[in-house]
Design a binder for these strands. Structure first.
Lengths: 204, 204
DNA sequence: GTCTATACTCGGATAGAC
DNA sequence: GTCTATCCGAGTATAGAC
């Protein structure tokens, strides 16, 4: 996809600043003043470009949401054994999350607050990745290569194990006294642990 | 524990209403007016009892947080094989979550917003349950009854699998078109699936 | 303890000059 | 397109009567 806006344009500066602020504080917590300050402009100009806070938020949210279920069609569609796909998916997904640690919390909280209609429009037909995955799983079941399992539960397990530590990070660090590097090491470790767990659970 | 406040006292009515509102909308989203309305009183009286919104919030938050890592010492301390404890823990935890579906989202989001100092005070020494569990696991490892695994990762996996579906519920329902009863059935199913998964992962 | 009325603050939005 | 100045509503908090 081609970037239609120059990196140093005012609009782009606003979007960068807005993304940072919204991801950190959510729609309710973010302040137009802060967004303006960080973009090096004033509030009036924000409204000139995006009319309202809500409209600005929507732009950021849409993009974030589209990344929540990652675009890993590449891995899922590849010609490879299921177990390797699972391995590749988890590893790549965790890497993405490491680079966007606020993404899960943001998408989950804000999804709750959106009105029903908007939510539907946003998430409907977003299930391509999952359906592709489910087809793979069902196929392997039919070929009797793996145990008969519910692909939905399998997918839920996989993303739960990948995402949850990022959500619980602050609490986890508090209760265990874990520092930044230790936490990181634990996450890295999970790139091996999770595929192992998932693959073991379907192995015949 | 003895309830010090009569159920129909004004204070109790406020607390019930506040809990409902805070859990649903979070600290930022909740409105003192709504809390007052639902308690059948006016705003002024809220402040009479709890001085500020923040103080009222703290009361609710403390109680919610103390339930997040559940008090299942009963199960964990029991004289039973580890596999049965895991089974019992997951099942009881999920039942608790079914009765408090907003709890996970609330505790996680609000924990992020608390200042460092308060967070520490709140979560420090909250790790009894986990330490007890870790001791059990290490013991079984020493006796060569199970594979050598990191108890931390094991515990993380267990709670991730239990909690995450409640966090992702709205998104999950949107993408899959799942209704209320189907979602419930899926959760019920997980009471069996999760212990199986966890126990299989440590079985020799 | 409970109410009505009001003060105060914060933050999103707009007017209008340049 | 960008700025300064200002408005205005929402929402927390308080004063003071009963």
């Amino acid at each position: 996809m081609v970037k239609l806006v120059k990196t140093d344009s005012t609009e782009e500066k606003i979007l960068i600043s807005a993304k940072k602020n919204f991801l950190k504080n959510g729609m309710a917590g973010a302040r137009m003043q802060d967004i303006a300050d960080e973009a090096g402009i004033n509030k009036a100009l924000l409204h000139y470009y995006f009319r309202t806070k809500e409209k600005l938020f929507e732009v950021i949210f849409r993009e974030a949401a589209s990344n929540f279920f990652p675009q890993l069609e590449g891995i899922i569609s590849a010609e490879a054994p299921l177990s390797e796909k699972i391995q590749g998916f988890c590893s790549a997904y965790i890497d993405m999350l490491l680079q966007n640690p606020f993404l899960p919390m943001f998408v989950l909280t804000e999804s709750n607050n959106q009105p029903q209609r908007f939510r539907q429009k946003l998430w409907k037909n977003r299930g391509h990745l999952f359906m592709r995955f489910a087809a793979d799983v069902n196929n392997e079941i039919k070929k009797k290569n793996i145990k008969p399992v519910d692909p939905g539960q399998l997918f839920m397990n996989m993303i739960a194990l990948c995402i949850f530590p990022f959500l619980a990070k602050p609490i986890w660090q508090m209760t265990t006294g874990m520092g930044e590097t230790e936490f990181r090491r634990m996450i890295e470790e999970r790139k091996k642990i999770i595929p192992q767990l998932i693959n073991d659970s379907i192995k015949k």
